[in-house]
Design a protein around this nucleic acid. Sequence first.
RNA 1: UGGGGAGUCGCCAAGCUGGUUAAGGCACAGGGUUUUGAUCCCUGCAUGCGAAGGUUCGAAUCCUUCCUCCCCAGCCA
Length: 586
Amino acid sequence: MSDRDIKEVLPSNFIRGIIDRNLNENLYQNKRWSGSPGTASHHADAAIDRAKIRTRFPPEPNGYLHIGHAKSIFLNFGLARDYEGACHLRFDDTNPEKEDEEYVLSIVDNVKWLGFSWKFKNEENLYYASNYFTFMYEAALSLIKSGDAYVDQQTAEEIRENRGTLTSEGKNSPFRDRSVEENLSLFEAMKAGHHPDGAMVLRAKIDMASPNINLRDPAIYRIKHAEHHRTGKEWCIYPMYTFAHPIEDALEGITHSICTLEFEDQRPFYDWLLLKLEVNQLLAAPLPKQYEFARLNLTYVVLSKRRLIELVENRYVSGWDDPRMPTLVGAKRRGYTPEGLKLFTDRIGVSKADSWIDYVTLEDSMREVLNSSCDRRVAVLDPIKLVISNYPVEQEEECFAPNHPQDESRGKRTIKLTRELWIERQDFMIEPEKKYFRLYPGNQVRLRYGYVVNCTGYESDEQGNVTTVFCEYLPDTKSGTAGADSVKVKGNIHWVSSKYAVPAQVNLYDRLFKVEQPGLKSASYLDDINDKSLTTITVQLEENLAGIKPMDQFQFERHGYFICDQETSTDNIVINRTVTLRDNWK
RNA sequence: UGGGGAGUCGCCAAGCUGGUUAAGGCACAGGGUUUUGAUCCCUGCAUGCGAAGGUUCGAAUCCUUCCUCCCCAGCCA
């Protein structure tokens, strides 16, 4: 593939534009990298970094990843892959009260599932912010020494009050001009555990009058007597995100630190901090740069961590992996595939404009991928009996059905035809509506892969529900035989033999919310929950599905794509509907 | 009312160092193929780029003013 071809194939977005420019300017030609994260001196004598760029995916291990994270994962890891760079997986675990190992494991699984590896050459590149606590502490000391940080003993309320408002300046803390020595001993006392949570905080000394509130002496270290999932009780002071994140990026030699739009106001501090640490000779250029893109908003879906937790804890769904959840574990159980998610993220692009993606874009991405990857099978979801009156009671024969209509190499399977079959309730109407071309008295349809039949009548119960449909088959019309085309029919319905069919439980999923933007027009997004988002039915499967195993995925012809659920056991098959087929009828 | 962002077809989104007819996808509409009313294939779909002025031979791209929306006042990330 030539350079030009590659250019035509790769998506175009503003971040790629920035990287192209950076690379053309040879911005990283002198960037040294020792093979592991570290300070300026750690990298000083190392070779030039073989990774052309470095990005990172930096989740906080305090929850499960969702489709919005998938966008970020495909962006960061995709960029690294396309530009011959590395993408680090880094757990941003700077708040011990919220984080847990459970989430670390799940996140690792999710990223692997999406097809990515954080390895580059011989580097592992799996990192934890907590591994840098010692350096962060030293960086804080250096800031104190250079007069750029101070220990503030105002209460949280006082700090808030003195921060000012969006339109008015803040006031300097009375503790702002302490001596370096006093700050040093106070900060050491913080670290030594001499003070309770909230007693004091380390703040960067910038400008309380800044129009950017994030520059009004942001807190960078706080006291938390909490046990950390990795460092245990080693620390009782923890760095804030604003302080920790730029340092993490710098230590890891990240070139492009890509985050979401809400951090835009934080960028001046990001640059301020790293420049200070460069001046103090702890870090060396080239310093990482932060770039922001718009986070994903999906119609009919909520993605905020708080809401997702609420849905789980209040049992609106069965758990984090409920197939209706937008979590990656939920999507996986629903039957959404990494390839489908990749297609989806390619289609929606990356920009800085707030947007709401149509849920159908996601669904159609899945259809496109699943259409080619899934073998076909037959399942009758809402069965009523069809009796072929002129077919001998004991007779049965094999019908041959291709596993994929566009791919003969996938072979065929056989399905047994018998006198009594299950067909879809919707494939029969007593009084056909306009343009209906399926079964109704007097009409002919083909039993897919079998014979053309002529509908002769039906039976119904006292309530008028059809219980049995009767028909007669045309013996010369079997699919695959010379006479197959002797009779032309418009309708073509699927069926399974009632003698050989395998019953199964199917979960039909619909969107969890009934409005595009949950909570926008109602008091609470919870008011917009679709109480019909799950319908569980008993269906009849073709006999070839008897041994179906969890994660097996098929298209059930004329219905959609389905996946075998993890709760399937030998005597109870459970199947989840991933997405329906497109349906232009009605 | 301070600061930071964004506004291109119903939903996304290229283009934005100014230059022939404003990419592409999804959706939608029409037609063809088809033993899935699926897939696939054709065709159509912005004299218009938030609005109004201006610069220019020429502007979505540059300038001015205005409008709308989003984010920021955690010792969360």
